[in-house]
Design a protein around this nucleic acid. Structure first.
Lengths: 325, 325
DNA sequence: TTGTAAGCGTTATCAC
DNA sequence: GTGATAACGCTTACAA
């Protein structure tokens, strides 16, 4: 692999000059510039980013800490993040905590070792202070672990509210809310939004906690069967909704005539299966873009427009709820 | 951030000595070693990997080039790869070609710039020679683009064969094969395996090509309706199988009584939906592990046990095929 | 057993 | 405009 020295030699200039044309900094005569450019071309030279990073103490690497990689919603989000990262001229190091403290420790060390320029924290963590100690810019997604770290979250309160309104407006009288782990702020916000409407209308609700990763189908089924007269179900993920719909079918309930169902996320699958699922869309596109926009500002030492940013969600009406006119 | 000099100063030794204890190389007195270790501890020192990499011309980074990130099978695979990579004491840079030549070019350059130690190539590419020119160890997964690059692939021929045998043994007389893009070797191998059995038995088959990413449901439906007497369908992915099953339901076909369906991949979803899908399991676990095992050998200049490695697949019988006794 | 110093490929400061 | 050169943080001959 050619180095800057090789280029300098070939172009009969010093490394300093080559560096200047590469970085477009400082004065350099147009003619010598062309000479250098030609040498670069001929030698197929690419500057060594490691050496550059060592000097600048910036690696041009952003790390993303995922909770897991096999969830549909997070995969969608990851795709956007990768795209936006490379478009911002950074590279993405992928980290998967899997709720394993040891893996997290390993990665925490690596962030330091590689002069990672920024961390996008999607995974939940009990060690936010260890992240802060790194003094590397951090953007949280879907969490709000500390007042010191900026975050981007869907408007979960609105999501809960929209779902409740839809269910109430289409006549539901007895509703189940299959939510995620109640320890998560996102889940709490959805619950608040959902309840805010339902309380006001005096509708009966039953709330159950489920895991987001591999929710237990048997659990869902037994809860549904425990309430034979339920007529509305709000699920905190489309996957939970899919499971609920199957239990409903087994119980010979008609959807949406007998029971209406609303999911969350709007993963691709929700529009592929029969019946197509009414759901609250979280825009992974908007979230990912906002994350990288903020990250770049942080890295460049600029002021953030919003410290805790909220992305609007949308009700997507499909076949698991009744049309209301 | 503390540097090796800080440690040296604190331990009253030279940087060389510190380096020796970090790398456990060369002689160093047990007592001074303890002194150094203590200084490292107190300063919370972690060696800068960038500086190390610059010297060694090895980054301890492995890159994985994905075709896309939102496919269930590839997400499963990525999770294994990340895990194995970090277990091998390497870090994972994630690259997503999305069949975009420009993105691929960008990444090709980056591999060079960062002294990436190895590339796991999952994406299809038309520029295998550009990869080879990098002279970085490469492992291909699910492809076989060149005799010069080692590969790991499921035994797709066996997969096709198992599916065909199952269908034939459970009485199918007229079969549709919804396969992936026929340009892929994996697809070709499945087809060969499938046909090898069917040809011998003289069973009527109709083969149709579909995209793996967002296969067209309407296309599937029209093909199924064009053969009202079809009694067996083999799909090259579970997603295609899901779509086929829905078309079948709309056509009031009973599964597996009227039509039997076999998918491919064994994604988690195939065991969640009703009916649970009979499928050919590709072991992402085995593939990912094999990939990293080979990669480490390549990086360490060791000989590979198998240049083109094949991972066995398995028929998982569930509810979309008839039991045969 | 330990220290000195050169070198990895860059960038940036300073002369010229 | 351009060229030496120190520095980034580390490893490794080589010397002591």
């Amino acid at each position: 692999m050619a180095t800057i020295k090789d280029v300098a030699k070939k172009a009969h200039v010093s490394v300093a000059t080559v560096s200047r044309v590469i970085n477009q900094k400082g004065y350099v005569n147009e003619e010598t510039k062309q000479l250098v450019l030609q040498a670069i071309e001929e030698l197929n030279y690419v500057p060594n980013e490691l050496a550059r990073s060592l000097f600048q103490k910036k690696s041009h690497i952003v790390a993303v800490m995922m909770p897991h990689l096999t969830s549909y919603y997070f995969s969608d989000l990851l795709e956007v993040i990768e795209d936006e990262t490379i478009n911002s001229n950074y590279r993405l190091m992928i980290c998967n905590s899997k709720d394993d403290p040891e893996k997290e420790s390993k990665y925490l060390k690596i962030f330091d070792q590689y002069n990672v320029d920024g961390i996008i924290l999607i995974s939940n963590t009990h060690r936010i202070n260890d992240y802060l100690a790194l003094s590397i810019p951090i953007i949280e997604i879907d969490h709000n672990l500390s007042d010191e770290v900026p975050s981007i979250t869907s408007n979960n309160f609105l999501g809960g509210k929209l779902a409740a309104e839809k269910l109430v407006n289409s006549g539901c009288k007895k509703i189940i809310h299959f939510r995620g782990p109640s320890g998560l702020v996102t889940v709490q916000d959805r619950t608040s939004g959902f309840q805010s409407v339902l309380k006001a209308k005096g509708v009966e609700t039953h709330t159950y906690d489920l895991a987001f990763i591999s929710p237990d189908p048997l659990d869902i089924e037994s809860k549904i069967n425990a309430h034979p007269d339920v007529d509305g179900i709000f699920c905190d993920s489309d996957i939970i909704a899919i499971l609920a719909i199957q239990s409903l079918k087994r119980a010979n309930k008609k959807i949406p005539e007998d029971v209406q169902v609303i999911g969350f996320d709007n993963i691709q699958l929700s529009n592929m299966l029969e019946p197509k699922i009414t759901t609250i869309e979280q825009s992974t596109e908007a979230i990912g873009k906002a994350a990288l926009k903020s990250m770049m500002k942080l890295i460049n030492g600029e002021e953030l427009d919003y410290f805790h940013q909220t992305i609007d969600v949308k009700l997507i009406e499909r076949d698991t709820t009744k049309k209301v006119f």
